[in-house]
Nucleic acid binder design. Structure first.
Lengths: 189, 189
DNA sequence: CTTGTCTATGCAACGAGTTGCATAGCAGGA
DNA sequence: TCCTGCTATGCAACTCGTTGCATAGACAAG
């Protein structure tokens, strides 16, 4: 149920509607947690029913009204409780690694394009992260002194940057390996 | 449904029972895909029903009989089909990152122990990977020339090693950031 | 004036993954 | 002897997450 907690954190950083949350999950939060709008609406409704969130109807001009959610006292308490209990280190689900090992039973060369495509995605993400870092933390317009929240957001962002850099280097390694395999004539067994 | 494909790859590398697969998912395969034995048994049954797998009853002495699964022709074809379709780059689910951002609304210092615990887990995993690499690929007893399957297994393992190294470096960064925050007196606002 | 896009919310059905429990033979130690 | 632990398989219930679909107002382009 970590989606609950991700929503609590996001709403503490800034209250917002389900729609707005869904967009945040495509952006900053989405870099370490994903969720679709259906999931978000369902969870918001449940958490509101449980008294963890407060709602406020916000009429808007030029667009549909929205429900702005914010964290209520019990929500903050629930988050605090979660922060103090240990969690399991993440377990990966890496489809591409399965494919690479599977390629031994098919044509490894056919994987090159796929790996290159993934490389491009990681390269784009890295550029996006670096732009965000320059804008909010290290660039000319960024604040001189960061508060605790900003420090923590920055270190999480640095994690994303490190992850993308590591991914790029590894995918290059994978490509080199695939090329080496293609260049090596199969042993005349 | 990538669990299906992970199972196909694992059974192509070596046929085995559900129990054995479950143990592999705690070991090598488990480094990039996790599954419990219930999930595995259920999927094995379904795939056998679909004709993707063949079963063979193997009586054993001193322990219960087992069902040894192996990949049938249609299973191999299904894997090949999957290998040729593009997949989405993974989306992360990183609980710890949520916690770190959430700590801004609680006590950041309380997170130090948790982060240290995670650091230990990654450190252990790294040692385990490096031991496996030395045993199978780079150590004295390892084969001089690797075949395609071994090359691909090695590059996936190198990915795991790179991931753990990156994680350790980032967790050190997180710890340094937490200490810096604790040392900085809050601004007298 | 119709079509498409953006904001904004939601239902229903399905599939994937987790948790708890059950069974059963064999081995080894208290 | 009883209890624990390992191999080996499985059911049932539940939660989490995904996919497809629906609604509805405002605005811009054709």
């Amino acid at each position: 149920m970590a989606l609950d907690h991700a929503i609590l954190v996001s709403l503490l950083e800034k209250p917002g509607s389900g729609y707005e949350l869904a967009r945040r999950f495509e952006r900053s939060i989405g870099y370490f947690w994903t969720a679709t709008h259906q999931q978000i609406y369902r969870v918001l409704k449940r958490m509101e029913g449980d008294g963890l969130l407060a709602v406020r109807d916000v009429p808007q001009q030029g667009r549909p009204d929205k429900k702005e959610y914010s964290v209520a006292g019990p929500g903050r308490a629930a988050l605090s409780r979660w922060l103090h209990e240990p969690i399991e280190p993440e377990s990966l689900r890496h489809d591409l690694a399965v494919k690479i090992r599977g390629a031994a039973f098919d044509d490894p060369a056919a994987l090159v394009r796929e790996v290159e495509r993934h490389r491009q995605v990681h390269s784009d993400r890295l550029a996006h992260y670096l732009a965000g870092e320059a804008r909010d933390f290290t660039g000319p317009g960024a604040p001189d002194a960061l508060d605790t929240g900003q420090e923590l957001q920055h270190v999480v962002l640095r994690g994303g940057i490190a992850y993308e850099r590591m991914s790029l280097a590894w995918l290059d390694d994978v490509l080199a390996t695939l090329h080496r395999i293609a260049a090596t004539p199969p042993p005349a067994a």
